[in-house]
Amino acid sequence: MKPVAFEYVAARSLEEAIEAIGRDEDAKPIAGGQSLVPALNMRLVRPTLLVDLNRAGLDGIESDGVLRVGATVRQTTLEHDVRAHPLLREAMPFVGHFVTRNRGTVGGSVAHADGSAEIPLCLSALGGTIVAEGPRGRREIDPDAFFVTHFLTTLEPGELVVETLWPPPEEFEGAAFEEFALRAGDYALSMVAVVVKRVEDMAADVRIRIGAVTDRPTGFADVEAALDGSFVTPAVAREAGALAAAAVDPGGSIHATPEYLRALTGTLVERALLRAWERAA
């Protein structure tokens, strides 16, 4: 199939991009296009205007206490940046295929808000920040407040994701990512990111985020609270996995039943937690 007819603007600056997006309520930004172009071809989306962000000056990476990643930075660029958090570098090879990562952008993955996307999951687990800019100026948004459900965010009309902020790894902090898919590059059936600090051999500031079996990166406070102040043993990790499995409510699909997805999620939480705990040492 082919997309419906649309107007095209190649923005030469962020200001030009915001102005173009703001003048048409059916406008869509495009950079890598790895998700948008297939949707256009299948006519799942029918924008009247595409605003190309590739020349808008959003392709930089800077480190000033946090890692500032411009919205149009290619996923493969971030994957191989030694300044990126180890959790992110571990997760990036699971993002599609290497050919799609060569074109796909970091900001595009965040703005697309797919519940099965790895980059938003890691951003939420690390306590990062989304920076958006629109006609009313620039603002910073916590990931837990940004993602609403599949493909829906709290971006306001005319706003663009311009960069994401990634905290650096801290002392005695460990992190791990786990994902299970039917084939390499497929959408995950379930995925988990865990970040934990080891303070006097006790777990602290535990952050567990689960995706794919949820409609957005989701944390479960009861599971995290049960781990705070504990020494993480295989038995403790197994109990945390059981709590997580009971907390998720996947719908199931032709590939896996809800019961299978709950059990799978519990196993991934258990594995990620043990590995993150070892790394925190």
Rank of each mutant, 00 (worst) to 15 (best):
V99E: 14
R103H: 01
A111V: 11
L88C: 06
R74L: 05
D81S: 10
G115C: 14
P86S: 11
V99Y: 09
V99W: 09
D114K: 07
V110P: 12
E79H: 02
T76K: 14
L87W: 01
D114I: 07
V95K: 01
T77G: 11
H112K: 04
G96Q: 02
T100M: 10
R89L: 09
N102H: 04
S109T: 13
L88P: 04
A71W: 02
R89N: 09
S109Y: 00
A84P: 05
H85E: 11
L87G: 07
V82Q: 13
S109W: 00
D114W: 02
F94R: 15
G104Y: 00
G96N: 03
D114Y: 00
S109N: 15
V95E: 01
G108A: 14
A71T: 12
L88N: 05
L78Y: 02
D81Q: 07
T100P: 10
Q75T: 13
G104P: 03
V73E: 03
G115A: 14
E90W: 00
V99T: 15
H97E: 01
G70L: 05
V73H: 01
H112M: 05
G108W: 03
F98A: 15
V110L: 13
A113N: 09
H112C: 06
H85P: 12
M92E: 03
A84F: 01
V82D: 14
S109V: 07
S109L: 07
V95H: 00
L78K: 05
D114F: 02
R89A: 11
A91V: 14
V106M: 07
R83F: 00
A91R: 09
R89P: 06
E79F: 00
F94A: 15
G70M: 03
A71D: 09
V95S: 00
G108K: 10
D114M: 07
T105V: 13
D81K: 09
E90D: 08
E79G: 01
T105D: 11
R74V: 10
L78M: 05
G96K: 03
V110Q: 11
T77M: 14
H112L: 09
V106Q: 04
R103V: 08
G96Y: 00
T100I: 14
A111C: 11
H85C: 13
G96P: 03
V95T: 01
R74K: 14
A84H: 02
N102C: 06
Q75I: 13
L78H: 02
R83K: 06
H97K: 04
D114V: 09
P86Q: 12
G70S: 03
N102T: 11
A91L: 15
H112Y: 04
G108C: 14
V110M: 10
F94S: 15
P93G: 05
T72N: 13
D114A: 13
G70F: 01
S109G: 08
T72Q: 12
Q75P: 06
L88Y: 02
H112F: 08
H85W: 04
V95G: 01
P93L: 05
G108S: 11
M92C: 06
E90G: 00
V73R: 02
V73Q: 08
V82H: 09
F94K: 15
L78D: 02
R103A: 07
A111Q: 06
V106D: 02
A113L: 08
E79C: 01
H112V: 05
